[in-house]
């Protein structure tokens, strides 16, 4: 294939991926959508899900991403994800421990503010688990 989509995956810490791809499937808040070359300019927010990169030469890649947004412009696709995980690099046990701690925090929170913050962090981990369960199923 001659025409390829320029794709960049950026996390707050670093540029995770920058490559040419045939197609990228992005987990948008309103449903997954695939982006090919010359896609109409779009801005979409993301939910926790699997980002799928397909490329006939460079090989395929699947990454778990949490939160952020995607922007398709004339130059290509930029995905800004708050967190990215390689699928095999997820340490489920430590995340479960963290979730357990957070649930304790929610119970012991002295103010609504503290409780909300802990609840938000717990939701984040739960959303990661949801995605993992879906793949396993």
């Amino acid at each position: 294939m001659a025409d390829k989509l320029h794709f960049e995956l950026v996390s707050p810490e670093r540029l995770v991926l920058a490559q040419e791809a045939d197609m990228v499937v992005v987990p948008g808040t309103e449903g997954d959508f695939a982006v090919l070359k010359d896609h109409a300019p779009t801005v979409s927010t993301l939910r926790a899900g699997i980002l799928q990169v397909m490329d006939s030469e460079g090989g395929d890649a699947k990454l778990l991403i949490v939160g952020g947004f995607a922007e398709v412009s004339g130059e290509g696709l930029t995905v800004l994800a708050e967190e990215t995980f390689a699928l095999d690099g997820i340490d489920r046990a430590s995340m479960e421990a963290e979730l357990h701690d957070l649930e304790e925090d929610i119970r012991d929170a002295k103010s609504d503010n503290d409780r909300n913050i802990a609840a938000k962090a717990a939701d984040r981990i739960k959303s990661i688990f949801d995605v993992l369960d879906k793949i396993a199923a």
């Binding site: 948008g28 808040t29 309103e30 959508f33 109409a40 300019p41 779009t42 801005v43 979409s44 927010t45 412009s73 004339g74």
Partner: peptide, 8 residues
């Protein structure tokens, strides 16, 4: 310049 589709 570009007009974007916004979703949502």
């Amino acid at each position: 310049g570009a007009s974007y589709d916004y979703e949502p």
